[in-house]
Design a protein around this nucleic acid. Structure first.
Lengths: 387, 387
DNA sequence: TTTGTTTGTTAAGGTGCGTAACATAATAAG
DNA sequence: CTTATTATGTTACGCACCTTAACAAACAAA
């Protein structure tokens, strides 16, 4: 193993810098012809020739066809080869465990959704068990054509910190109660909301943006922050833990620990809704989905609740704008991506903050897996050819 | 002028990459011997020889002496030469205009403090006038040994945005009512709180840190945020405008625009203090300095006010931790760097947030000027030898 | 003075890219 | 069907930038 890793590093060192940038381009942008690579990277044809020869010899790229332009000779088209390997991405969610296996340039090799027997509020034994099974099953059906497994990424519903000492407090260690990660494969853990934010950046509303905030509103509330193109994790992995914003707060009002999380969560919302529900308005909605359905039909009592909730969300957004002014905020999660709230959220933010675009997420339940997949693929690419 | 700039760019292109990195090292770390440069940069002696020859020929470095080790030949010591030029940094503050002129490697060539006739609450005509005079005076006494003026940096008590269209709303344009910037010199504007934050990073409590928040508490309140080694400015230059955090905020409480700024400012603090001051406690303090002095002596009523204020500051810090979790927060400004508040702030943050170190700034009134000076010097260096 | 050590220079070689010229393969025009 | 034009790919060669090796210079200690 040690020997293999060393030879891997040797391969990387052996590649010329132009070869590495060709690899990175194919990694980021998918298949391309030599002339395309040459013009985007500003490299000459001879350089490209030797770069591709290097990569091809290592199995890192392969030719997948030829493209005929309007005139002249056909151009050869290349993509990452089997030697580049593949990654496994797992979203260890509270209701489902979603698994995706892809090449580094994101070609789907395998995917699967496993439904948990019950709603897991915290990262615990059942999730750990499910992850172990998913990994084992995936490893079992690995095909030779996939190449080496380069990274295993897992998105967790907990804070995630790299620092060994601080881990115990996050609960992230519970992942390993029934799951032993495979040997010799880089294991990447990331918070699920952060993953969803990255997915918005690579596949969703925040496509290509370097600065934005993603706020996920569901049972709980959380934020993923991307600034300067980088995910902001925070010293304790607590960046985006906006459930800990000071609340309630005002003259003579003492903020409570996690007071906002308790107030703005789905349970509290439904409790307030039931308490305020008029006698003559029919049966109170059973859950948030029912509440938003009623509001969508124009039901006055439901709409009033939704509006008040949206104003609270707006205040949360304003807190984020006041601290980092991201310019763009994406709302996601079962409650957040609801279109009914959007205008009320915007109204509140307009009243309280500097100009901020607010969008609803269009990505569905796959967002988190796609995010952790990107993290795993990025890591694998960096491992092979550096930054 | 156009011609000069072109030839300047040519010089940069003419330098080898090793020469550029030698320049950057001398810029960042000050004078060094050749062996030192060689070992820190991993360059061989012949390479260093030619790099320094290049830079010396352009006047970018000069020899300032020789150092004798315990054994062997003396090592030549170099620093940036006159050809590298100098920068002017100006803090256009509300009570003083501070000017510093330095070489790129921060050797002080000239400095001056100009006291404004009255406290300027906003960036207006008098500040503009004072800046114009300071720049003119400095340009007049420029010595040939200083080399070319490479950049002029000005710290402003307003939001600063690069985008032309959005400028009008910030008030930053008021700077130019009586001040015309010199031709052909890069002009760099930055918010004064952001500058103070950078000064903490280069000279103060946050020395060398890549992630921290600097919160300035005085007449008004503001924050400078450094994450991943970079200053976070925000889409509208409004990152750190924490006076716009939602406040008051709670069940049935509607946040007001800039409600926190009004509540937590020095004026409001003194108003509350006067209102709550007991009849038998002597005369109420006239200003915050007097209030903190009394609190320092153990005066109960004063201490109660300071403590309550510290709890509000603690809530503000908690809001920042909830959004970005910087890990370290530096408190500055006339009120913020007061040691009496520190334990109460810490108490509140400990109660509400993830572990966060909180320090009082040790830099005095020069912080802002030092920060804009660093911005100007960095820009000048990048101009000469790239990133 | 000699010896060993560090610094600086000169000479020679290698890597990674470029340009120039040529070979190849396609379309368009006659 | 041949020829002209154009784009792609390869080969030959040169340049820029760095390295190692060897040598020269300058110092302290023996």
């Amino acid at each position: 193993m040690e020997q293999k890793q060393l030879s891997e590093a040797d391969i990387r060192a052996a590649f010329t810098s132009s070869a590495r940038s060709v690899f990175r381009t194919l990694f980021q942008s998918g298949p391309a012809t030599r002339p395309q690579l040459g013009s985007t990277l500003g490299l000459s044809r001879p350089t490209l020739s030797s770069s591709i020869a290097e990569l091809f010899a290592a199995g890192y790229v392969e030719k997948i066809g030829e493209v005929q332009g309007p005139l002249g000779r056909k151009a050869a088209m290349y993509r990452l080869g089997a030697g580049a390997g593949h990654v496994i991405a797992i979203d260890a969610g509270s209701t489902h465990v979603r698994t995706r296996v892809t090449t580094l340039d994101r070609r789907l090799l395998h995917h699967r959704v496993y439904r948990l027997s019950s709603n897991q509020r915290h990262l615990g034994a059942e999730i750990s068990h499910a992850v172990a099974e998913e990994v084992e099953a995936t490893l079992a059906l690995t095909e030779p054509g996939w190449g080496k497994l380069r990274a295993l990424g897992i998105a967790l519903p907990s804070r995630v910190v790299a620092d060994n000492a601080a881990r115990a407090a996050t609960g992230q260690e519970n992942l390993f109660s029934h799951f032993t990660p495979p040997d010799g494969v880089p294991l990447l853990l990331e918070n699920n909301v952060n993953c969803a934010a990255l997915a918005e950046q690579s596949h969703g509303v925040a496509q290509g943006l370097n600065d934005f905030a993603y706020i996920q509103i569901g049972l709980k509330i959380g934020m993923g922050l991307v600034l300067g193109g980088r995910l902001i994790r925070g010293r304790s992995g607590a960046a985006g833990e906006i459930g800990h914003l000071p609340f309630p707060w005002g003259p003579g009002l003492r903020p409570q620990n996690a007071g906002l999380e308790d107030y703005v969560g789905a349970e509290a919302l439904m409790q307030r809704t039931r308490a305020a529900w008029p006698q003559d308005a029919g049966a109170a909605p059973a859950d948030t989905a029912a509440l938003f359905a009623l509001a969508g039909e124009g039901h006055a009592a439901a709409l009033a609740q939704v509006k008040r909730h949206a104003e609270d969300i707006g205040a949360i957004v304003s807190a984020c704008v006041g601290v980092v002014d991201p310019g763009i905020v994406v709302l996601g999660g079962g409650i957040g991506d609801n279109a009914i709230m959007l205008p009320y959220v915007r109204e509140t933010v307009d009243r309280l903050s500097y100009p901020t675009e607010i969008h609803a997420s269009s990505l569905g339940a796959d967002a988190t897996v796609l995010g952790i997949e990107k993290i795993a693929a990025d890591h694998a690419c960096e491992l092979l050819v550096g930054k």
